[in-house]
Amino acid sequence: MVTKLLDYGKPCDTPAIADTPALLVTGVNFSYPQLNHRVLENINLVIHPGENIALVGPNGAGKSTLIKLVAGLEKIQAGTIEVYGNPATACKHRISLVPQRSQVDWSFPVSVREVVMMGRYAHLGWVKRPRQEDHDRVEAALKRLEIDCLAERQVGDLSGGQQQRVMLARAIAHDADLLLLDEPLNHVDIATQELIFHLLEELCEQGKAAITSTHDLGILPVHFCRAVFIDRQVIADGAVDEVLTAENIARAYGFEFHKQKDLSQWLNG
């Protein structure tokens, strides 16, 4: 309990180890206590710094659960998860989570600026107030997501796309090395989608890594090089056109369609 209290705002005393993957998932199993079947089974995954990958699969495939395990929202039951060579939960500065929209209480009275500042809390911890550096980083994140003019607005008043920009700005202010985005594209306008993708590409060019879960297969070929298809297990992992085969889709979604056609053709268009 006491050690738990000290986790919050702790300085990062486990520096990233050189030449280790951004994320290394080994033999992870998971089941929820109320359900008797496994949600995740023997998941193995390696993501290197600079990689921007899509995590795809049908509803209930365990995409969110995997993201929650990496972010420390669920306890690891079997297997290991390492982030830059250290246990996933060792350093709270290194991982930033953009949760699913439904996980957030959008009606709670907070301003855009206050939410983006929450990205700095991992660095501040108990009692400490934001310093000049924190304010500067929040300002920069607001500008990057083009929402500096909305800074004083209440988050509840914004559109879905604007709200998602706020969450991304928070992740930028967090200054993490591994970004986890759980279904960030739901209820989001095209302009915001484009902004999110450009931002992810830019961050990954700087050597960070990002995982975006989505069930929108159409966007994959345009915005991602690599996709991981999961449905309890890793079904396919590799270049998008190799992963998005009719067989994989049929296997994951439980039906067969256009089996004789080459899917990637219309997915690319």
Partner: peptide
């Protein structure tokens, strides 16, 4: 007053709160 920011983040987004080590 002292725990205002912790109250904000746990009310608005408990997932983020857990991810940064605040219960």
């Amino acid at each position: 007053f002292v725990f205002y920011k912790e109250l904000l983040v746990t009310s608005f987004d408990p997932s983020h709160s857990i991810a940064i080590g605040l219960s």
